[in-house]
Computed example of a mutant assay.
Amino acid sequence: MAEGKAVGIADGQVIALRKMVGALLHKRFGDLPAPVAQCIAQAAKDDLEQWFERSLDAPTLAAVFADDKTPG
């Protein structure tokens, strides 16, 4: 039971991160291209955390994903 709860909490954190990254990028750079939105929707927690940090001061949308295979 505790393991299921932990998985649920982790899933909830990833969902929240996806929303935060998407909202921040939309606020900074406008409407997101479909491939970027799709990538965010499928991303793992580590990637989302990295993109969130980069998005705080990245000069362009492409710079957020500079080292990744994500279209930007």
Rank of each mutant, 00 (worst) to 15 (best):
1 M>G: 15
1 M>H: 11
2 A>G: 09
2 A>I: 14
2 A>N: 12
3 E>W: 15
3 E>M: 13
4 G>P: 08
5 K>T: 14
5 K>V: 15
5 K>Y: 13
6 A>P: 06
6 A>D: 13
6 A>L: 15
6 A>Q: 15
8 G>H: 06
9 I>Q: 14
9 I>T: 11
9 I>V: 12
9 I>K: 12
10 A>E: 15
10 A>G: 09
10 A>S: 14
10 A>L: 13
10 A>H: 11
10 A>I: 07
12 G>N: 04
13 Q>C: 12
14 V>A: 09
14 V>F: 02
15 I>H: 10
15 I>M: 09
16 A>T: 02
16 A>N: 06
16 A>Y: 03
17 L>C: 11
18 R>H: 06
18 R>C: 01
21 V>T: 01
21 V>I: 05
22 G>A: 13
22 G>W: 09
22 G>P: 03
23 A>H: 10
24 L>M: 12
24 L>Q: 08
25 L>V: 03
26 H>W: 10
26 H>S: 09
26 H>Q: 14
26 H>K: 15
27 K>G: 00
27 K>V: 03
29 F>V: 05
29 F>S: 05
29 F>W: 10
30 G>V: 10
30 G>L: 12
30 G>T: 06
30 G>P: 00
31 D>I: 13
33 P>Q: 13
33 P>W: 14
35 P>A: 00
35 P>Y: 07
35 P>I: 06
36 V>K: 10
36 V>Y: 06
37 A>G: 05
37 A>Q: 14
37 A>V: 07
38 Q>Y: 09
38 Q>I: 07
38 Q>L: 11
38 Q>M: 12
39 C>H: 12
39 C>V: 05
40 I>T: 08
40 I>L: 13
40 I>Q: 10
42 Q>A: 08
42 Q>L: 11
42 Q>C: 08
43 A>K: 01
43 A>R: 03
44 A>E: 14
44 A>Y: 07
44 A>V: 13
44 A>T: 10
45 K>N: 09
45 K>H: 11
45 K>W: 02
45 K>M: 12
46 D>A: 14
47 D>R: 05
47 D>G: 10
47 D>P: 01
47 D>H: 05
48 L>R: 01
48 L>C: 11
48 L>S: 07
49 E>F: 01
49 E>H: 06
50 Q>H: 10
50 Q>N: 14
50 Q>V: 13
51 W>Y: 04
51 W>F: 04
52 F>N: 06
52 F>T: 04
53 E>R: 04
53 E>D: 11
54 R>N: 13
54 R>E: 13
55 S>P: 01
55 S>T: 00
55 S>W: 04
55 S>E: 00
56 L>F: 05
57 D>V: 02
57 D>E: 09
57 D>H: 04
58 A>Y: 00
58 A>F: 00
58 A>R: 00
59 P>R: 08
60 T>Q: 10
60 T>S: 13
61 L>M: 03
63 A>R: 05
63 A>W: 00
64 V>H: 03
64 V>L: 05
64 V>N: 01
65 F>H: 03
65 F>T: 04
67 D>F: 06
67 D>I: 01
67 D>V: 02
69 K>C: 04
69 K>G: 08
69 K>V: 08
70 T>N: 06
70 T>C: 14
70 T>G: 00
70 T>W: 11
70 T>M: 09
71 P>I: 07
71 P>S: 05
71 P>F: 10
72 G>P: 03
72 G>N: 05
